[in-house]
């Protein structure tokens, strides 16, 4: 982050904290709102939350690394989430993930493409089990997929 971006992040975080009345019990909500804005939790924001809520930084990070909804890494321009719920698993979600990793050139354990264009994540269940297997691209749900459909879906992002 540049100096200006950092300042902005702090300012935005202050607004979020204030909207909750700076209460300790809203730590998770505050982090959710920050994540909503940046798609990840920038370090200056985490430090600011710690300071303003009077919660130690390790405790803030403990929460931020515990819940699946948070990420400490910036994500790419497009977010692809593959549902790995049970119904999707038995209907072939692992094959969708393999195909996506191959098409996007992602190594094992790598989430975001080197050009920061795509981030691939697995989610537990988007609750559309009857359309399994399912993935979402920037929030839009695509259902009843086969690995062969992946290239078309990716093309729509360009």
């Amino acid at each position: 982050m540049t100096v200006a971006e950092t300042e902005n992040a702090i300012k935005h975080t202050d607004g979020v904290i204030e909207s909750y009345g700076a209460k300790r019990c809203d730590l998770i909500h505050i982090l959710q709102d920050v994540q909503e804005e940046y798609d990840y939790l920038p370090r200056p924001a985490l430090e600011r939350v710690s300071e303003k809520l009077n919660v130690s930084l390790p405790e803030v990070l403990r929460v931020a690394t515990f819940y699946a909804a948070f990420s400490l890494e910036p994500r790419g321009e497009h977010l692809i989430t593959v549902c790995t719920g049970t119904a999707c698993h038995v209907k072939g979600a692992p094959r969708l993930i393999d195909a996506l990793q191959r098409d996007l050139g992602l190594e094992e354990g790598q989430e975001t493409t080197d050009d920061m264009k795509f981030t691939l994540r697995e989610v537990r269940c988007v609750g559309c089990c009857s359309l399994a297997p399912v993935l979402t691209v920037d929030g839009r749900i695509h259902g009843n997929l086969a690995p062969e459909d992946i290239s078309d879906i990716l093309e729509d992002c360009f």
């Binding site: 790995t84 719920g85 049970t86 119904a87 999707c88 698993h89 537990r124 269940c125 609750g127 559309c128 089990c129």
Partner: peptide, 8 residues
């Protein structure tokens, strides 16, 4: 919270 995968 419905944390179960495969349930909605």
């Amino acid at each position: 919270d419905e944390g179960d995968p495969g349930a909605f």
